[in-house]
């Protein structure tokens, strides 16, 4: 497992060693200049999607075929990918939190709860998106999985644009939003648990898909 993790991390670092520091600096500067936490949140999303690129590296060099000849099982091969996504997202959340705190210390602004809530929300959404993509990427390849996911998101976004105004007036949703405002921590905890459950389900289904795959 240690070797698989090293392989994932070295591959991604070798791919992004030039762009990653630039992105990190750029988002830090933008956050400080605009005083907008959006760039910190966006960083979490970007990092999680960066971590998916390990799949395309494998596809490009035939790693899957070679991995089958190594004394490692399918749970470990797939697990290394999920673990790297967690490491990347964890790093991005810590980096975002540190930048957010620095920005608040410099400007004297408050809103630490907003920062934590925002990072948590984007972490949950990004985790769900990325971990849902893994089984699809193992089944159809990363490119098709990305395209498929894009179609789903465009459809969801389009639906929201069309019917969003009706949703705003929908009483049950108003109640939910109200409850979220009044009890943020149970909601945040629940969302995080949901993301972890999605991750676990996606992990199991990815292993099942991967174990049936032929290279």
């Amino acid at each position: 497992m240690k070797g698989l993790l090293r392989k994932e991390l070295s591959g991604l670092w070798s791919l992004y060693k030039k762009s990653l520091p630039m992105v990190a600096v750029l988002y830090a500067v933008l956050n400080l200049v605009t005083r907008n936490d959006f760039f910190l949140y966006f960083g979490v999303w970007v990092m999680l999607f960066y971590s998916l690129s390990g799949m395309s590296l494998d596809e490009s060099c035939g790693w899957g075929r070679y991995a089958r000849t190594l004394p490692v099982n399918d749970w470990q091969v797939v697990g290394a990918k999920f673990l790297v996504s967690l490491i990347y997202s964890g790093g991005a959340v810590l980096y975002g939190a540190a930048l957010g705190v620095i920005q608040r210390l410099i400007t004297g602004e408050q809103g630490y709860a907003d920062l934590v809530g925002g990072l948590l929300a984007v972490l949950v959404v990004s985790m769900v998106m990325v971990f849902l993509m893994y089984p699809m990427a193992f089944r159809f390849g990363l490119e098709k999985a990305r395209n498929g996911f894009l179609v789903v998101w465009v459809a969801l976004f389009g639906g929201f644009m069309l019917f969003g105004s009706r949703l705003e007036e929908w009483a049950p949703l108003e109640d939910v939003i109200q409850s979220m405002v009044l009890h943020p921590f149970p909601w945040a905890g629940g969302a995080l648990l949901t993301a972890i459950a999605v991750m676990a389900l996606c992990y199991v289904s990815s292993v099942q898909i991967y174990s049936k795959k032929e290279f």
Binding site: G3, S60, W63
Partner: peptide, 28 residues
């Protein structure tokens, strides 16, 4: 079992030193 396929199976951005470190963590 040692295996050699027709071409390399490590991502081209890696080097032999990294391959060494990776496989030392996989093969006992």
């Amino acid at each position: 079992v040692g295996v050699v396929f027709e071409d390399s199976y490590f991502y081209g951005g890696l080097n032999a030193h990294q391959v060494d470190r990776i496989l030392s963590g996989i093969r006992r």
